[in-house]
């Protein structure tokens, strides 16, 4: 048994300790906003926050996540939605198929909390690991800048 704290709720999970956090979030806890893309840490579709930092949940064993504060897209902004990143994503109509976008937003949210007014090249570097197959990259770049403005009250 592993106890995980996901979006502020303690969850008791009956799964082997080497099970990847992604599968427990999605298939055991049914928080399906977090997606599977590659299983090798290459695409970012599975990005969640572990104590506020963006991690690839397909690479995290649940035994290593015990005691950490885990946040998924469903729990962003205290579970109320409307995080500045989400506001910007809506304003710019970023998603097409949408499959990569939870991971994109979780990555961007963690990045902006450590770097609230990034330069263009810092944005590119930070978001480089997140693949979008609809190739919405240009809107993602713009939306991150917009989210940064929103965070600063603009």
């Amino acid at each position: 048994m592993t106890v995980l704290t996901v979006n502020g709720v303690n969850q008791v999970v009956d799964a082997p300790g080497d099970t990847r956090l992604l599968w427990v979030i999605r298939e055991h806890l049914r928080l399906t906003g977090t997606k599977f893309g590659c299983g090798l840490g290459l695409c970012g579709a599975c990005t969640v926050h572990l104590n506020g930092e963006a991690v690839r949940s397909c690479q995290v064993e649940i035994s290593d996540a015990e005691g950490a504060k885990i946040t998924t897209i469903e729990g962003l902004n205290g579970g109320q939605g409307g995080h500045p990143v989400q506001q910007a994503w809506l304003e710019l109509q970023v998603p097409q198929c949408g499959y990569c976008q939870s991971g994109q937003m979780m990555n961007a949210a963690a990045f902006l909390s450590s770097n609230p007014s990034p330069t263009d090249s810092e944005i590119v570097e930070a978001q480089q690991g997140n693949i979008c197959r609809c190739i919405t990259y240009n809107r993602i770049k713009t939306a991150i800048k917009r989210a940064s403005e929103i965070m600063q009250g603009a």
Binding site: T32, I73, E74, L90, P95, G98, Q101, M105
Partner: peptide, 19 residues
């Protein structure tokens, strides 16, 4: 018009085949 499928793709509630 704002696409009907857009909001769910931002709050994580959109349901795909794998969900």
């Amino acid at each position: 018009k704002l696409p009907f499928d857009l909001p769910g793709k931002i709050d994580g509630s959109a349901v795909y085949g794998s969900d």
